[in-house]
Nucleic acid binder design. Structure first.
Lengths: 201, 201
DNA sequence: GGATACATGTAAGATGTTACATGATTGT
DNA sequence: ACAATCATGTAACATCTTACATGTATCC
């Protein structure tokens, strides 16, 4: 019954949003269409099936259509919160830095809700480490080969270098910002919702 | 017979590489696996079908297996070069800046081979314009809403802002670099290969 | 002779895109 | 009444991932 494959970035994005508030499918689409989350597609053919999968995984619960409307709202369940936390607190790998940098940023954005300060710092330390390593690889490549390239190839490469440098600098700034943060609500993950008499999916 | 759908970014990436030199499928995989092009997947299940599609479109020609080996090399045909140019010289849209920034950089990287200085400058001017607009949108969003966000959400947003600023700065640097470039081989597109007696696919 | 790299491919499955379908609600 | 927006979905299609299959050349 439960999907056996790993969840997609879109599914985790939905999870992260639902962690902050319950939403309907339509609201989620609007969010993807109108806010800086527009990075994701707002196509119904992506979002509604993704929500169904999340329900099938028992990570979110869907309300019954309310008030004569067909509108249903989705909210995170304890299992979903656990899955979100597992995703957020994964170690930062070189693999992810190269092939999926955007989902790293997404993970960090959601950490404030569901991760501890220690976990946030661990993320940033890993991010800094991997970005530094990757930057070194790129610089060596640049030094060895860029001379023979056409102008635009070299400039495009330097575009990539500059982005990596910016990311590295950001990680350091962010570490300082988090390090200086007072212990507060971000201190440790919010306790999971107490299981009710019956969590109906 | 020819595919009617638009070509994918992977197909254009292959086209751009083949524009510089003929390669076998395996070499292309190696390129994606070992160089900064590692951004693309090196999975054979992606590359070989993509090459087949390019042959079906008559954009590239495949050599017969050479020297008892099964190895075949692929080279760009005139039609493929034309398709590549059309892709490279598309205007830079806000859409692309938001949803597909990487393929913009890829286009720029390939422009040195197949586009004129004027086209390269037009790209950079468009890139600068759209990046500036997008940066403004993000800054307004930040100013209006960031106050209420959790720390990591705000930092993640600032990560995005910093990247956009870097891209904008890059566009300006690149414009200066291209503007100062002497007229030379990059001056206009290389002439298309003269059609031989028969271009066998 | 055996391991490793070379070299090309297929099959199953999941995801996402595009386009269409359907109907309720709200504003004019 | 009509249009626009709200709201949820399906169907067809293409692509990509992962894993497997197959065989050759080369090195030790």
């Amino acid at each position: 019954m439960r999907p056996t494959t790993r969840a997609t970035t879109l599914e985790y994005a939905l999870l992260g949003i639902l962690d902050q508030d319950a939403h309907s499918g339509y609201e989620l689409r609007r969010l993807f269409a109108d806010t800086p989350l527009r990075y994701f597609s707002d196509s119904p053919g992506a979002i509604y099936p993704a929500l169904r999968r999340l329900v099938a995984r028992r990570w979110v619960a869907a309300s019954a259509p309310a008030g004569g409307r067909r509108r249903r709202t989705f909210r995170l369940r304890a299992q979903g919160r656990q899955a979100l936390r597992a995703w957020l607190t994964q170690p930062v790998t070189a693999q992810a830095v190269v092939h999926d940098p955007d989902s790293l940023t997404l993970r960090f954005a959601f950490m404030g809700q569901a991760a501890s300060i220690a976990e946030i710092k661990a993320f940033l330390v890993g991010y800094e480490r991997e970005m530094k390593a990757q930057l070194q690889v790129l610089r060596e490549y640049h030094g060895a080969l860029a001379r023979g390239w056409p102008l635009t190839g070299r400039l495009a490469f330097e575009h990539g270098l500059a982005l990596h440098e910016t990311k590295l600098a950001w990680a350091r700034t962010a570490l300082r910002a988090v390090g200086g943060a007072k212990r507060g609500p971000d201190d440790r993950p919010r306790p999971a919702r107490r299981p009710g008499p019956r969590d109906k999916g």
